[in-house]
Nucleic acid binder design. Structure first.
Lengths: 261, 261
DNA sequence: GAATGCAATTCGACAATGTCGAATATCCTC
DNA sequence: GAGGATATTCGACATTGTCGAATTGCATTC
C-alpha cells in the first residue's frame, strides 16, 4: 500500500464522513501535520476529487467523483443485465427492488427500482447499508466465508432495535441462508422496512451481487409469490451472466457455529 | 502536486475512459513501468476505488466511488436548494431541466428533472458535457474570464455539425451572454436537443452553477414564457443562496474580441 | 498433457520524492 | 485596527515510492 495514496484515500473518507473540513480539522482527524495534509488535499483538488467550499477555505468532496461514479455504474455488467429483470420484479410484486454489491463491511445499492404505485420515493442508488443489517449483505456474507468470519470478529453496529449484533446469532442465519439461497431481514436496518434477498452468480459460480425486494414490515412475511419471483429474477440474471447452476453451491461447511476440531 | 497522488488520479481517469484495463495496458497509457502502476492500482483497490473485473485480472473503477459521489451530491448546498425550483420550472414549461457545475473543461449535471410528460427518459445526473458545447457551460465561461481564455486557447472538440469550434465566434457569444444573463445552444451537443441556461450566484456574487431548460430543436426558439421562467428560477435559487442581485454583474470587460491595447 | 508466451505480481537497492517543522501570509473576530 | 486562528509556502532530511529484473500464474497452442 503506497503511503501517499493511502493517505489521500483517507482524506476522501474523512470528507465523506464530515462533509466539510478545514485543513486543520483534517490533520487532527488523520493525525498528520497540517502541511502534509495540505499537500494531499491540493493534489486531490487538482484533479477535481476535492473542492473548496464556495467562499470559505474549507474543503469538500469534488465533482470528479460524480463523473467517475457514473462511469463505474456504466461499466458494471451485472447492473446492465439485471435492470430489466428487477424492473419486472418490481412490477409483478408491486414492491421496490434493489441490486447491491459488497464494499468492505457494507452493501452499496447499485440499482434501485421504485415501487410502481406512483408515490414519491427517494432514489436509493448509491446508498450503503452495513452488511450485517441487510438481506443482501447476509446473502453475500453467506457465500464468502472469509469476509463473514472477518466481519463477525468486529463489533456489529446496531441501527434499529432489531439489528442483529450477536455474532453467533448471525452465524446461524448465514449457515441456513447458504442452504436455501434466500436471506431475510426484518426491521434490522430501517424501522418499518424489511427485505428478502437472493444471490446473483457469474460464469464461474461466484456470488457477485444480490437482488432484494423491500417489503413493508406491516406486510411481513411476504407471500410466496414474492419469494418465487425473487428466486426467478436472481436465476434469470445469473443465467444471463453465464452461470450454469442456480442457486449457487453452498461454500465450505459454513462459518464458526461448529468449529472443526 | 504530489506525484503518487497525481498518478493515482491519472489511473482513475484512464479507467474512466477505457472501462476495463490490465496493468500492462495502463502502464502503456501512462508511460510508467508496470510495477509502479501495479503498486498504485493495488493501493486504490485497497480502498475500493478500483476493483478487479470479476474473473479476469483486469481492473475497473470501484464501488467506493459510488458512495463518495452520493455524499458529494448530498453536500452540495446549491443542489439541495435548487431542486424544488427546477422541479417547478420543469412542471411549468413541460420541459426537462438541469443544474450543472464546472469541472475543468466540462459541465457536470448535478441534478436533472425529467420532462413531466411521463415518457421514459434517461436520468442525466452525472453526465458531463464539454463546456463550449453547452448552454450551462457558456454561462459559466462568460462569468469567469480566466477559465474562458484558457479554454479558448485549446482546440475545441466538435460533437455535432453545429458545435462551435471557432474560438473567436465563441468569444463573441460569451461577451453577449454576460450582458443578458442568458446563454443558448442549438444542437451543439446533441442533435435534436437545444438548451437555454442562466447563472446561479451565491452570497458573494460568484457564479457557482447554471440552470438550464432543454428544448427539443423542433420547438426552437422557446417561447418567452420559458425564458422568463428560467430567469425567475435562477433568481429564486440565487436569492435562496443569499445573493443580493441578479443577474450577476458582468465580469471584467469580457474576453478577447477587443483586446485592450 | 506438456510447452510456450504473455501478463500480473513480488522483491530489493537506490535516490528521487514526499514529509515535516518553522516561517509567512491570509482570513476572520473582537 | 489588533489579535488569534487557519491556510499556505519553503527547504532540508531521510523516509518512501520507484524501477528493473526475477518469479509466479494463467491461458492458449501444439
Amino acid at each position: 500500500m503506497i503511503q501517499a495514496i493511502d493517505r489521500a484515500a483517507k482524506v476522501l473518507a474523512s470528507l465523506q464522513g464530515a462533509r466539510h473540513l478545514g485543513i486543520t480539522e483534517l490533520s487532527a482527524e488523520l493525525g498528520l501535520p497540517v502541511s502534509t495534509v495540505h499537500g494531499i488535499v491540493k493534489s486531490l483538488q487538482g484533479h477535481g476529487l476535492v473542492a473548496q467550499e464556495p467562499g470559505g477555505s474549507r474543503y469538500m468532496l469534488g465533482p470528479a467523483l460524480l463523473k467517475l461514479s457514473n462511469v463505474y455504474l456504466d461499466t458494471l455488467d451485472v447492473r446492465a443485465r439485471a435492470m430489466r429483470w428487477t424492473l419486472e420484479l418490481a412490477r409483478r410484486t408491486g414492491l421496490s427492488t434493489r441490486l447491491g454489491v459488497q464494499l468492505f463491511d457494507e452493501i452499496i445499492i447499485i440499482h434501485h427500482n421504485q415501487r410502481p404505485d406512483g408515490s414519491q420515493q427517494m432514489p436509493e442508488t448509491g446508498l450503503s447499508i452495513p452488511a450485517h443489517a441487510s438481506a443482501m449483505g447476509k446473502v453475500l456474507l453467506a457465500y464468502s466465508p472469509e469476509y463473514a468470519s472477518g466481519l463477525l470478529g468486529r463489533p456489529l453496529r446496531s441501527l434499529t432495535g432489531a439489528t442483529i449484533t450477536d455474532p453467533a446469532r448471525l452465524a446461524i442465519q448465514l449457515a441456513s441462508i447458504a442452504d436455501y439461497g434466500i436471506a431475510t431481514e426484518e426491521d434490522e436496518a430501517v424501522l418499518g422496512e424489511s427485505s428478502v434477498a437472493a444471490p446473483v452468480v457469474d460464469t464461474r459460480g461466484t456470488v457477485i451481487a444480490a437482488v432484494a425486494v423491500v417489503v413493508p414490515s406491516s406486510e411481513w412475511p411476504p407471500e410466496s409469490s414474492v419469494l418465487n419471483g425473487l428466486r426467478e429474477t436472481a436465476r434469470n440474471i445469473s443465467r444471463e451472466l453465464g452461470a450454469s447452476t442456480w442457486p449457487p453451491r453452498a461454500p465450505r461447511p459454513a462459518v464458526a457455529v461448529h468449529p472443526e476440531s
